[in-house]
Design a binder for these strands. Structure first.
Lengths: 230, 230
DNA sequence: TTGAATGAGTGGCTCATCCACTGCCTGAGT
DNA sequence: ACTCAGGCAGTGGATGAGCCACTCATTCAA
């Protein structure tokens, strides 16, 4: 059992403000109403508003100056990759851009992992590949597939690739119910992934590179096609 | 004049807690002392502690559960790329990993920009290259160089590359005083960058790719070598 | 014309207090 | 001996009133 999250008032307020910012109600660069007024407007305490502001500031959406006010940052120009989950949730159009980057970065990771993985890491990849084939639910297949890619990132020996992979997954896995198209058949999924894992396990960067391109391009195509109808 | 930042109590407390987490005083997975006790210990109000907690939670370092307590997340395993600025500041060892990713991603961006840039974007790159040559201070040269790379990311037409570039810059530009080595001579810096800009402006992905690899590999080498003595 | 003082409006921070949730422990009933 | 309902202690969630500090535009005297 997971300790599943509770929704506090601050959470709700934060999400509300976030949406008002992303959909342009509070455009980038504009000054938000004073905390006191927002608090009255939303029927909460100024303290609560401040808590929500603090989080949004940390997230890179707001900028507060003592004695002046709170301004909406130009997040698209100045923000970092951590904005992606939020942006995707608000506008799935971002998925196409994300998948292109996933394909590019995934190829780099595969190439590097083939060159640098340790023997236990190569063995671990095989195990995780078997887990993909053994999964039953499409959702479980997709998650098992994601675990393979996390392991690939770790196998590069470069922890930045691990964090980058986490960021990309955090951006599109929340929408995975709409992206299960490539994962309905466990055997097929595992077969599609197999050449990549084999090349990495064999320590062959060039083959890993082409295998990654094939795999990532194919799954990307299937996911985006399946997304169209929505 | 920049509106430069003020350091509030919450900022200080946040930084302090962050350091205590990153250096292992509060190891990943451990339960923090109750808010009341921390507040007494640091001589602030529980409200202030909560504000700091809120930001660190948003940053992915903490996890709070009502009625139980606040726990340190396993950020290295679960965290995203937004942790990088913090991690680098605390342990510059990360720079090597970051530069490797910068080289890989930078190459992808150059290739893609060469294929997709619009005419005004190609012209803009030339302008920014001239700005590098025209800069006088090494620091200004480095920042002008960074602007070229931001423009390249924008020229891909993929906004995720822009955010990714922002994340990487946010990670290592704060330490740029220790990384100015490649940028002491404006003319030389511009000359090193010129083949890349030319290839992108000409719309030649293959040449852009090799030019990017040469540029990124060279600057990376110089920066890391200059870093050694510290 | 200058520049010091003022005051309105804003965010920073504290305090005291109450509520809600969780986990454990106790003790009655089986 | 075992079970489980109830209570209880400890924790975070949220409030609201209050005071302080900062910024900026206005005012007014030199």
């Amino acid at each position: 059992m997971e300790p599943l999250p509770r929704e506090t008032i601050v959470d709700v307020l934060e999400r509300r403000l976030q949406e008002d910012i992303l959909d342009g109600t509070h455009p980038a660069g504009s000054l938000l109403p004073p905390e006191q007024r927002l608090a009255e407007g939303y029927g909460v305490t100024r303290t609560t508003v401040k808590h929500a502001f603090g989080r949004l500031t940390q997230a890179g959406l707001l900028e507060t100056r003592h004695g002046v006010g709170t301004r909406v940052r130009d997040y698209l120009r100045l923000g970092g990759a951590d904005l992606l989950p939020m942006l995707v949730r608000h506008n799935p159009e971002w998925l196409a851009d994300i998948f292109e980057v996933r394909a590019g970065v995934g190829t780099l990771i595969a190439e590097r992992a083939a060159a640098k993985a340790t023997p236990p890491q190569r063995a671990r990849l095989r195990t995780l590949l078997d887990a993909v084939a053994a999964a039953t639910e499409p959702d479980a297949v997709q998650l098992a597939d994601a675990e393979v890619h996390r392991a690939l990132a770790r196998a590069t020996g470069n922890r930045v690739y691990v964090l980058l992979t986490n960021t990309l997954f955090a951006a599109y896995l929340p929408l995975r119910v709409r992206l299960v198209a490539p994962f309905h058949d466990p055997a097929e999924s595992a077969a599609r992934l197999e050449p990549l894992v084999t090349a990495v396990a064999a320590g062959d960067p060039a083959t890993a590179r082409t295998a990654a391109q094939a795999y990532l391009g194919e799954t990307q195509r299937i996911m985006l096609e399946a997304l169209e109808p929505s």
